[in-house]
Write a protein that binds this DNA or RNA. Structure first.
Lengths: 143, 143
DNA sequence: TCCTTTTTAGTGTATATACACTAAAATATC
DNA sequence: GATATTTTAGTGTATATACACTAAAAAGGA
C-alpha cells in the first residue's frame, strides 16, 4: 500500500471547479430571464437552426443527443420550445415558441451583460487567449 | 423582438465543453480502477483528512456540502468509505476503508498517468499557465 | 416488393451538481 | 439549568450530463 499524500493539483478537478464558478456567475446574471445559461445556449442555437431535429441540434451544440433530449424537456413543459413534427414522424421539428422568443430576447441582453462584465473583470485579451487555448485542447486517446 | 443571430462565443459554454472533454479523458484513464475522477478526488481528499465530517470535507474540496453528501453515497454503498461516528452523533467521522485504500492506490497510479499524458500532450508550461489563470479567476458579483 | 441497414428518438440508470428546506445535535447565553 | 443560537446532516427537487439499450421510422439493395 503506497498512496501519495501530497500530489500536484489535478488539472481536471481544477478545471471543473472553474467551470462551476463561471456557470454560477452566468446563471446569476441570467436569473431574471427565467432560464439558465445552458438553456439560453439551447434556445439561441435552436433559434438559429429551427426547425431542427434533436440529432441535428446535438451535432451543432456538440452535446450528447440524449443529454439534449433531457435538457429540452423542461423547455417544452414551460412552453418555450415546441415540436412541429407529426405523429409517428421520425425527425422532430423543434422550434422556439413565441414565449420562447420573448424569453430569449431578455436572456440575450443579460447574457451580453455577462460576457461584457467578464471581459471587463478578467481582461478581454486574457480571456480570448484562454478561450482559444481551451477550445483547441484535445486529449490523448489512451493517455 | 430583436434577437441577434450571430453573437460572439459564450465563454461559459466554451468552458463547460472543455471541462466535459477533460473529464471524459480522466474518467477514461481511471476506468479500470472502478472510480470516476470526481470519486478519486473525494477519496484522496478524505484520505488526507480522515476522520472527517461532511462539512469539513466540503470546505476542503470547495464543494457544496449537499453535493458531497450525494457523491459520498455510492462510495459508502460500494464499501470504499465508511462512517465511524456513533448513533445520534452529529459530526460524521468519514474514513476510507481498506477496500477504499486498495482502489485509491490503483486510481492514483492511473491518475498520475493521466496528468503525465496531458502534460506531454498539451505541454507542461502551457498547462500550468492555463491552470494558474483559471484557478485565480473570480467573477463580478453582479456583473 | 421484401429484407437489411441506417438513422432517429426515446428510456433506464447513473453520476455530478446546487438551492431551499427540515431536523436534530452542540454550543452559547442568560 | 433552561432557552436561544449555531452548526451539522440530510431530504426534496431540479438541472446537466452520458452510456447502454430499445423501438420504430426511413433509406437502400436484392
Amino acid at each position: 500500500m503506497s498512496i501519495k499524500r501530497n500530489t500536484e493539483k489535478c488539472y481536471c478537478i481544477t478545471f471543473r471547479k472553474a467551470a462551476r464558478k463561471l456557470t454560477a456567475y452566468y446563471d446569476r446574471m441570467l436569473l431574471s430571464s427565467g432560464v439558465t445559461t445552458a438553456q439560453y445556449s439551447l434556445l439561441i442555437n435552436l433559434f438559429r437552426s429551427a426547425p431542427c431535429s434533436v440529432t441535428a441540434l446535438a451535432k451543432i451544440m456538440k452535446l450528447e443527443r440524449t443529454t439534449l433530449i433531457r435538457n429540452i424537456k423542461p423547455l417544452i413543459e414551460t412552453g418555450l420550445i415546441q415540436d412541429l413534427s407529426k405523429e409517428r414522424e421520425r425527425d422532430r421539428q423543434l422550434t422556439v415558441t413565441e414565449a420562447g422568443l420573448t424569453t430569449l430576447e431578455a436572456a440575450q441582453k443579460l447574457w451580453e451583460k455577462a460576457q461584457a462584465g467578464l471581459k471587463k473583470h478578467v481582461g478581454e485579451k486574457k480571456l480570448e487567449k484562454l478561450m482559444n487555448t481551451i477550445a483547441d485542447l484535445d486529449y490523448p486517446a489512451q493517455g
